[in-house]
């Protein structure tokens, strides 16, 4: 059988919120390592990849590798039934037709049990090649969310330009142009609230704000976000989640005419 008990159940709610608007259905792959998911949005423009390591659960039991084919909207609805301080357990058999979510209140006075039908999802797995990035930008996740929100008022896409002076986000539309420049706060300092840039080569790429805004749904999961950019390659947007794993998003650049 498979059983994974997450004491900080709110994390599962937050992971769900971070993917449900992007991905319609996906396989949650459960192995001894943990729970992972990789899925593209329906237009194949962006990809989400997440890992919840087994040591983040207490206990974690996976007798046989299984894939739980899940409709995200249905799971998100069930996750909304869990309170923020609930302990969440995910449970299924070795050849499952259903998955069970159990929500326990902290004092165990209330136990909710939701069983959900699984789907047979034929998903293709993509291998993500190791990339030498031109620039790796770390910044407060809330700052990146704010930038995406503000520039969405100006245009549909954002140009990210990174050089020795810092990083600039700019958008243009019918009403005009918006530019937001961030300087490094300190050299190689990745403390919360800091902007840090590892620069190999100056780089400038344009991305759809619609998708970056979807990615910022992961903001409640982490204090820091890392943007890894490289000329003519997809950007990797990573939120590392303390003690359990990560969620990463990839988005292909817009092709300059």
């Amino acid at each position: 059988m498979f059983e994974a008990r997450l004491v900080q159940g709110s994390l599962m709610k937050k992971f769900m919120e971070a993917i449900k608007d992007l991905v319609k259905e996906a396989n949650w792959d459960c192995t001894g390592t943990g729970i992972s998911l990789q899925a593209m949005d329906t237009s194949h423009v962006s990809l989400v990849s997440l890992l919840l390591r087994s040591d983040g659960f207490d206990p974690y039991r996976c007798d046989r590798n299984i894939s739980l084919g899940i409709n995200m909207e249905s799971m998100a609805k069930i996750m909304k039934c869990a309170s923020n301080d609930d302990v969440i357990t995910i449970r299924s058999e070795d050849h499952p037709d259903n998955v069970t979510f159990v929500f326990e209140s902290p004092n165990q006075e209330k136990v909710c049990d939701y069983e959900m039908k699984l789907m047979d999802i034929d998903s293709e797995h993509l291998g993500i090649p190791d990339t030498e990035y031109d620039a790796i930008i770390s910044m407060p996740a809330s700052e990146f969310q704010r930038i995406c929100r503000d520039l969405s008022n100006i245009g549909d896409s954002v140009k990210i330009t990174c050089n020795k002076d810092g990083v600039q986000f700019s958008a243009q539309g019918d009403t005009g142009i918006g530019k937001i420049a961030l300087k490094q706060n300190a050299v190689i300092d990745k403390e919360d609230g800091q902007v840090s840039i590892e620069l190999n080569d100056p780089v400038s790429l344009t991305f759809a704000l619609r998708y970056l805004t979807f990615f910022t749904k992961a903001t409640p999961l982490a204090s820091t976000v890392t943007l890894s950019v490289s000329a003519k390659n997809p950007v990797a947007v990573e939120y590392r989640v303390d003690d359990i794993g990560y969620i990463r998003y990839y988005l292909a650049p817009k092709i300059e005419e």
Binding site: H44, L47, E124, L126, G127, S157, A252, K254, I255, E257
Partner: peptide
């Protein structure tokens, strides 16, 4: 506006 590229061509199908 520039065209949006699909991801498939960057990543390898396993």
């Amino acid at each position: 506006l520039p065209e949006q590229d699909r991801l498939d061509q960057y990543f390898i199908k396993c």
